[in-house]
Amino acid sequence: MDNTTHFGFKDVATQDKQGMVRSVFDSVANKYDLMNDVLSFGAHRLWKHYTIAMANVKTGDKILDIAGGTGDLARAFATKVGNTGQVVLSDINAAMLNEGRKNLINKGVIGVEFVQLSGEQIPFADNSFDCVSIAFGLRNVTDKDQCIREMYRVLKPGGCMLILEFSKTDIVPLEKFYDFYSFNVMPKLGKFIANDEESYQYLAESIRKHPDQETLKKMVLDAGFGLCEYHNLSGGIVALHKGIKTQ
């Protein structure tokens, strides 16, 4: 059995990846939102807005946001589910979770629960949530199939899973620009703004190692979801996969 996995373009021992990813996010946590705005030219707000619109969430729903980081999705979900619903913001990284907690408090959002957890071992009972989301987190998970299986397990029958993640663009001119931007500009911006070039080099590499749209769709279906559709955003730079746990 192969005991290695990828960390960006490097092969590393499987048991080491989680710690290495944690170091990346420990390093970037306090500049995470600013860097997202700068690196995506603000587009990440539109991608997340689209994700919320696609979630088909209603008042009273229970939502789990995995790798929820600074709480962008959790804040929008909290508005949708209202006082009778429940939103759990989770992240494996304590520094990111603390940033999320600070953000939500500063924005006057109350009632969101915070749980530090790994997407590979979700500490909730089967059939607990109406919607489970993970935005820009799956590519950092060591065992992605296990994470998707866990999301399936904790979803109620008829529940909806959302995976928002960088993906593959098939628009050739955009791909060339995107490659140049990712490997030459993003790490330099990381160094300039967050004083951390390596983490943003990892970001660019991890995006290239992440499964493309069709591969991820197959992973979702293999995990047990009865239905999965994906929607390309910004020419496929980002894709939203929506899985439904049909009964």
Binding site: N56, K58, D130, K156, P157, G158, G159, C160, G226, L227, E229, I244, T246, Q247
Partner: peptide, 16 residues
């Protein structure tokens, strides 16, 4: 139109 969990999902493909 898929009716499940007390709501409708609208999708462009379904095997069933």
């Amino acid at each position: 139109f898929i009716c499940t969990n007390n709501r409708f999902f609208v999708v462009t493909n379904s095997d069933v």
